[in-house]
Simulated assay, not measured.
Amino acid sequence: MRLITLTAAALVLAGCAQDAPEQPEASAEYSPDRYRQAVSDIARTDDVAQDDARKPAELLAFAQIDSGDVVGDFIMGGGYVTRLLATAVGGDGRVYAFQPEEFIAFNADYAADQDQTVRRYSDNDGNPIRVFALRAPLTAPGWPEPLDTIVTVMNLHDLWLEQFPEDTPERTARMLFDALKPGGTLVVVDHLAAEGGGAEAANTLHRMDREMAMRLLTDAGFELEAESDLYARPGDPRTANVFDDEIRGRTDQFAWRLRKPE
């Protein structure tokens, strides 16, 4: 995994198009090998088929998840990332798995997936241990405590969907910023749209316009700390809907780690 360290200002000024200088490999402290136990967690048996494409150990290394961390999975979907985080944070850590009420209203399976995931990390009496479900409006998850890290995977583009109020992206970005401890990090992975795709690409292709995303997050106060080519697939023309059979599971994606200043 190649890590690219950037400043947000340089990225925006360059129009998100210029290559940034390569930096040394990630330190051994956050190597994928560190997360072998999390990846091999028996509760992830059903996830293994996706691992080749989703690179779970590398994602945890890029996110720099530590034992004892308090982490939010923002828009948890089917729970793949939640289950991955559950072991990575260790016995002293906590994972808040957020499923927006709007998504559940659209598809009740999102509620069932959330319940099933939390159940895997509950005691014999059904009390959650380490993984806690949150259901609330998209822009107001109600995080119970300040977070060390928030991870959102393949969902940032959803903030621009037409069914949501126009100010949803700005309100959500500010909420994510406020939810983190000073020095906390936001890890974003999403499908890349063609340059200039804008909100239309989010609605029609479920892809994220890179420059639009960076502007949103830096305007909220985040500073880009690192970018990874972990999910780079240059052969993707970025013009197909991500659910089309011809490209599903093989889209070109960006991965960012952004930090809230101390």
Score class of each variant (00 low, 15 high):
residue 146 P to E: 09
residue 184 G to W: 03
residue 138 L to K: 00
residue 130 R to E: 09
residue 122 S to M: 04
residue 139 T to A: 15
residue 109 D to T: 14
residue 164 F to C: 06
residue 174 R to C: 09
residue 97 A to C: 10
residue 191 H to Y: 08
residue 184 G to T: 12
residue 135 R to Y: 06
residue 84 L to Q: 04
residue 62 F to S: 02
residue 134 L to H: 02
residue 58 E to V: 13
residue 196 G to W: 04
residue 74 F to E: 10
residue 122 S to W: 04
residue 124 N to A: 15
residue 112 A to S: 10
residue 147 L to N: 02
residue 91 G to F: 07
residue 142 G to I: 13
residue 111 A to Y: 12
residue 180 L to N: 01
residue 107 N to S: 09
residue 67 S to K: 10
residue 126 G to D: 05
residue 177 F to Y: 15
residue 161 L to R: 07
residue 198 G to N: 04
residue 121 Y to D: 09
residue 99 Q to P: 08
residue 193 A to H: 04
residue 125 D to Y: 15
residue 68 G to T: 12
residue 130 R to H: 07
residue 131 V to T: 02
residue 178 D to A: 10
residue 123 D to L: 03
residue 100 P to N: 06
residue 90 G to C: 05
residue 198 G to A: 05
residue 189 V to P: 00
residue 165 P to R: 01
residue 100 P to C: 06
residue 81 V to N: 06
residue 138 L to E: 08
residue 154 M to L: 14
residue 187 V to T: 07
residue 129 I to M: 08
residue 59 L to A: 03
residue 127 N to D: 13
residue 91 G to P: 11
residue 109 D to F: 11
residue 74 F to P: 08
residue 178 D to C: 07
residue 125 D to E: 13
residue 149 T to G: 02
residue 58 E to S: 08
residue 173 A to E: 06
residue 191 H to N: 14
residue 78 G to P: 07
residue 138 L to T: 11
residue 71 V to G: 01
residue 112 A to I: 15
residue 75 I to P: 01
residue 156 L to E: 02
residue 76 M to T: 14
residue 130 R to W: 07
residue 100 P to Q: 04
residue 195 E to N: 10
residue 105 A to L: 15
residue 129 I to T: 13
residue 73 D to W: 01
residue 59 L to D: 06
residue 139 T to K: 01
residue 133 A to H: 01
residue 107 N to V: 12
residue 157 H to W: 04
residue 94 R to S: 11
residue 103 F to K: 05
residue 132 F to N: 11
residue 113 D to C: 10
residue 141 P to C: 07
residue 61 A to E: 02
residue 105 A to G: 12
residue 150 I to A: 03
residue 102 E to C: 10
residue 113 D to G: 10
residue 104 I to A: 10
residue 112 A to L: 10
residue 164 F to K: 02
residue 166 E to A: 11
residue 92 D to F: 09
residue 82 T to H: 00
residue 107 N to T: 14
residue 118 V to E: 00
residue 142 G to E: 10
residue 131 V to S: 00
residue 88 A to N: 03
residue 83 R to Q: 12
residue 167 D to R: 05
residue 178 D to P: 05
residue 61 A to I: 08
residue 194 A to E: 15
residue 166 E to P: 05
residue 130 R to P: 06
residue 151 V to T: 14
residue 82 T to Q: 00
residue 180 L to M: 10
residue 80 Y to M: 12
residue 81 V to A: 13
residue 91 G to A: 13
residue 145 E to C: 08
residue 194 A to S: 14
residue 197 G to F: 02
residue 124 N to W: 14
residue 169 P to L: 06
